[in-house]
Each structure stands twice: as structure tokens, then as C-alpha cells.
Simulated assay, not measured.
Amino acid sequence: MLGLKQEALALALGDDWSQKRVSLMEGKEVIEEDILAQVATILKVPVEAIKNLDEDKAVQIIANTFNDEAVAYAQYYKCNINPMEKWIESLEEIKQLHEEIKKLYERLLAK
């Protein structure tokens, strides 16, 4: 029931309640107004939110809210480094070092 365990809800509703009674209540088509008001208060939601709850729509909203960036490891999920760019950068550095070595070698031979 909206993310609250049945045992916790039973405890919050009072001594007359048990997990089994909460489970039975959840299966009912109609819940007494006073009990519904107590549950809404415990859940900190308006009574109308419980009365108008459409589980299929709620699940659909949740499913559509998440995307690849919603997962906890998203910062490690996507590779921000283009391996080809790094390869080209390395080749350019090698080429530059090769040119410097070539110039140094030419100076040494000129002496």
C-alpha cells in the first residue's frame, strides 16, 4: 500500500489492527470513510489520492519517468571518452615526438 509495509500500517492504525486485517482491507472494493481517512493521514496523502488511485496509470507514470540517466550507476554507465579520438591524439603525439627526434638527430649529424 503506497510503499508502506502492511505491518507498519497495522501498527499505525492501532491495537485492533494486524497485518492480516490490513491485507484484507487492501482487497476490499469499498473501505469505510473513517478508516480511509486514518490511512490517508498515516500516508500523508489526501483521501482523494487513495480513492482515485489507478495502479496501471501510476506504474505507467513511474516507468515513463525513468531513463538511462535515472539509474544509480549512470555516471559510470556511459563512456564520455571517444576511444578513436584518444587513439588519434596518441598518434599525433607520437608523430610530433618523431619529428622532434628527427630534428635532434639532424643537428647531431650536422656537428
Results as ranks from 00 to 15, higher is better:
Gln6Ala: 03
Val22Asn: 06
Ile94Ser: 11
Glu55Asn: 03
Ala49Ser: 03
His98Thr: 14
Val22Tyr: 05
Asn82Gly: 03
Ala110Leu: 07
Glu99Pro: 00
Lys111Cys: 14
Val47Tyr: 06
Arg107His: 08
Val71Cys: 15
Ala72Pro: 10
Leu11Gln: 14
Ala70Tyr: 06
Lys103Phe: 01
Asp15Asn: 08
Ile62Leu: 15
Lys95Cys: 14
Leu108Asp: 07
Leu9Met: 01
Val30Asn: 10
Glu89Gly: 05
Glu100Val: 00
Ala58Pro: 07
Pro83Ile: 04
Ala70Ser: 13
Glu55Trp: 05
Ala110Phe: 00
Asn82Tyr: 05
Glu85Phe: 08
Val45Ile: 14
Val39Lys: 05
Asp56Thr: 12
Lys102Cys: 01
Lys102Ile: 00
Gln38Tyr: 05
Ala110Asn: 09
Leu9Ser: 01
Met25Tyr: 00
Asp15Cys: 08
Leu108Pro: 07
Asp54Tyr: 06
Glu85Asp: 08
Glu100Pro: 03
Ala12Arg: 03
Cys79Ile: 12
Met25Pro: 02
Ala49Asn: 03
Met25Trp: 00
Ala74Lys: 04
Asn64Ser: 07
Ser18Ile: 03
Gly14Trp: 02
Met1Ile: 04
Gln38Glu: 11
His98Pro: 08
Leu108Lys: 14
Leu104His: 02
Ile35Thr: 09
Val30Ala: 08
Glu69Asp: 15
Lys102His: 02
Cys79Ala: 12
Gln60Ala: 15
Leu104Ser: 00
Lys5Met: 06
Leu24Pro: 00
Gln19Thr: 10
Tyr73Val: 09
Tyr105Trp: 15
Leu91Asp: 11
Lys51Tyr: 06
Leu24Val: 05
Pro83Asp: 11
Glu99Arg: 06
Ser90Ala: 15
Asp68Phe: 05
Pro46Phe: 02
Val39Phe: 05
Thr65Ser: 15
Leu24His: 08
Glu89Phe: 04
Lys103His: 05
Leu4Glu: 09
Arg107Trp: 03
Val30Asp: 12
Glu55Pro: 04
Ser23Gln: 14
Ala74Cys: 13
Ala63Leu: 11
Ala12Gln: 09
Trp87Cys: 12
Leu4Asn: 07
Leu24Phe: 06
Glu99Tyr: 03
Asn52Lys: 12
Ile42Gly: 00
Gln6Phe: 03
Ala110Cys: 07
Leu36Asp: 00
Asp68Ala: 10
Leu9Arg: 01
Lys78Cys: 06
Tyr73Arg: 09
Leu4Ser: 11
Gln6Val: 03
Ile42Gln: 01
Ile94Gln: 12
Ala37Gly: 03
Gln19Phe: 05
Asp68Cys: 07
Val22Thr: 04
Ile88Pro: 05
Ser23Asn: 15
Leu9Phe: 02
Leu91Ala: 10
Trp87Val: 07
Met1Pro: 06
Lys5Ile: 07
Asn80Trp: 14
Ile42Met: 01
Ala8Met: 05
Lys111Phe: 13
Glu48Thr: 07
Ala10His: 03
Phe66Glu: 13
Phe66Ser: 15
Glu69His: 12
Glu99Leu: 13
Val22Arg: 08
Phe66Gly: 15
Ser23Thr: 13
Ile94Cys: 08
Glu33Trp: 07
Tyr73Asp: 09
Asp56His: 11
Glu85Gln: 10
Leu36Ser: 02
Met25His: 00
Glu69Val: 10
Leu104Gln: 02
Asp15Tyr: 11
Gln6His: 02
